[in-house]
């Protein structure tokens, strides 16, 4: 057992034939371009409050002006950059911890499992919002610290998801075989369990990004982020109180759409890549 599978063989060609991948990749490219090219795309400073409040979209202000006299398009670009960064940092850190804990817990079982899972319960049961309020009000940390704190609070979800799958995986014949052949724990976890659960990571990563980005929106809503720091969540919560005005379609909608595109890009890539990295699915896509 233990079929070796080289994902690199002809990968590019197959990926390009996959509509999921193409859509996901082009969305990502589009968003990255938006971020990279933002200085050229919008001439306005997102913090400049010097324009006429609630001005409708025009040639100068593509998406009009918000309540504080700031160019919405410039805000959108700056917000996308910050939100993307926040989401990526939180998701990567959270997922990394989650994978390690989940696999270790499933593999070692017993006391390790008990301790890790009870710590996970503990973290899950404490409302993250409360800890963040504490931190934000006492220490006023930078968004990066908040991202890492959020990650350290959010790993239990993926850890438990991965653990539950790994528990099943652990008893599969090829793992048992590898074990009988004297494979060390590190070897089996690293070579077998970790890669085989890859699709879960992608889904978990996409949902972590989503969680982080949404949490950022909620925290902005609660006023816990530096109000001058632009983010998509902040923009949504800024625009919310004016939903009954005509401004909603060029102010409230664009950040929601961008957020949706962002999550979509991740999920599409995840859906696409899961087929290429899961050896047991090779038959499914090869035919």
């Amino acid at each position: 057992m233990g079929a070796r599978f080289d994902p690199a063989a002809g990968l590019g060609r197959r990926l390009l034939a996959d509509p999921w991948f193409v859509t996901g990749a082009s969305l990502s490219l589009f968003l990255v371009l938006l971020v990279v090219l933002s200085p050229w795309l919008s001439p306005h400073d997102p913090h400049d409050m010097g324009y006429a409040a609630f001005a409708p979209p025009s040639a100068d202000h593509w998406l009009g002006v918000n309540d504080g006299g700031m160019d919405i398009f410039a805000e959108l670009l700056a917000g996308l950059r910050n939100t993307l960064a926040f989401g990526l940092v939180t998701a990567s850190a959270g997922l990394a911890i989650g994978i390690l804990v989940g696999l270790a817990s499933a593999w070692f079982r017993g006391v390790v499992d008990q301790v890790l899972m009870r710590v996970a319960d503990l973290l899950l049961a404490i409302p993250a919002v409360m800890i963040l309020i504490l931190l934000a009000s006492f220490y006023r940390p930078s968004p990066w610290v908040l991202a890492l704190v959020l990650a350290s609070l959010a790993w239990p979800t993926s850890a438990r998801l991965i653990r539950s799958q790994a528990l099943g995986l652990r008893t599969r014949p090829h793992i048992a075989a590898a074990r009988q052949m004297g494979g060390s724990s590190a070897y089996i976890i690293g070579r077998h369990m970790m890669p085989e659960l890859f699709p879960l990571y992608l889904i978990a990563f996409a949902s972590k990004v989503r969680m982080a980005v949404f949490m950022e929106a909620s925290l902005s809503f609660l006023g816990l982020f530096d109000p001058t720091r632009k983010s998509l969540g902040r923009m949504i919560s800024d625009a919310l109180p004016f939903y009954y005005l005509d401004v909603w379609w060029h102010w409230l909608l664009p950040p929601i759409v961008l957020l949706t595109l962002l999550i979509m890009a991740f999920t599409f890539l995840a859906v696409s890549l899961e087929r290429f990295f899961d050896p047991r699915l090779r038959a499914a896509w090869a035919d």
């Binding site: 989503r210 980005v213 949404f214 929106a217 909620s218 809503f221 969540g233 949504i236 919560s237 919310l240 939903y243 009954y244 909603w248 409230l252 929601i256 957020l259 949706t260 595109l261 962002l262 999550i263 979509m264 999920t267 599409f268 859906v271």
Partner: peptide, 18 residues
């Protein structure tokens, strides 16, 4: 579903309310 998943609760909530 992927599209839906990208819409935050704040957004859906307010749109539904509106």
């Amino acid at each position: 579903m992927t599209v839906l998943q990208g819409v935050p609760e704040i957004g859906t909530g307010v749109l539904l309310l509106m």
